[in-house]
C-alpha cells in the first residue's frame, strides 16, 4: 500500500512536470528539433533539470544507501553493449518523434484531455510495441 502511494505520487509529479514544462505540445518539441528554424531550446532545460535531480539522487541511493524504499533492491543502470537493436530502435524512435513531436510520456499526458490525437498516438504506439515483442520475442 505504501509502495503504491509512493508510486502514485511519483506519477503525479512526473505528469505535472511534463505539463508544466510545455513539452506536451508537439509544436514545441518540433521547434526544439528544428535547429535550422526558430529554435526553441526549452527541451534542453527540461532534460537538464530532470538529470540535475535524478543523477545526484541516484548516486546517493547507490553509494550511500545501497537499496531503495521499502527494502527493494536497486535496478542495474550500468551500460549494456551498444547493440544494433539499440541503434536501429533509437533511430526509428527519433524519426517518429520528429514526425509527431510526441514521445511516450507526453502522449500519455495528453490522454488526460481525451484528445483524439493522443488516443490515436498511444494506440499506435501500443501496436508498434506489440509488433516488436512479436517479431523479436522480447519479454
Amino acid at each position: 500500500m505504501r509502495q503504491f502511494l509512493a508510486v502514485l505520487l511519483a506519477g503525479l509529479l512526473f505528469g505535472a512536470g511534463l505539463a508544466l514544462s510545455g513539452m506536451t505540445d508537439p509544436g514545441r518539441v518540433i521547434a526544439f528539433l528544428d535547429v535550422t528554424g526558430d529554435w526553441d531550446p526549452t527541451l534542453m532545460f527540461v532534460m537538464g533539470g530532470a538529470i540535475a535531480v535524478f543523477a545526484p539522487g541516484w548516486l546517493l541511493l547507490r553509494k550511500r544507501y545501497g537499496h531503495g524504499l521499502f527494502g527493494c533492491a536497486l535496478p542495474d543502470l550500468s551500460s549494456g553493449p551498444v547493440s544494433k537493436r539499440l541503434l536501429v530502435g533509437s533511430a526509428l524512435f527519433g524519426i517518429g518523434w520528429g514526425i509527431g513531436g510526441v514521445c511516450p510520456g507526453p502522449g500519455l499526458a495528453n490522454l488526460s484531455l481525451l484528445r483524439p490525437e493522443a488516443i490515436a498516438f498511444v494506440a499506435a504506439m501500443a501496436l508498434g510495441m506489440l509488433l516488436v515483442q512479436r517479431l523479436f520475442r522480447l519479454r
Binding site: 530502435g89 533509437s90 533511430a91 526509428l92 524512435f93 527519433g94 524519426i95 517518429g96 518523434w97 514526425i99 509527431g100 513531436g101 510526441v102 514521445c103 511516450p104 502522449g107 490515436a120 498516438f121 498511444v122 494506440a123 499506435a124 504506439m125 501500443a126 501496436l127 508498434g128 510495441m129 506489440l130 509488433l131 516488436v132
Partner: peptide
Amino acid sequence: AGLLVGFGT
C-alpha cells in the same frame, strides 16, 4: 508517429 515511436523505443 505512434507506430514508429512504439516500435523504436
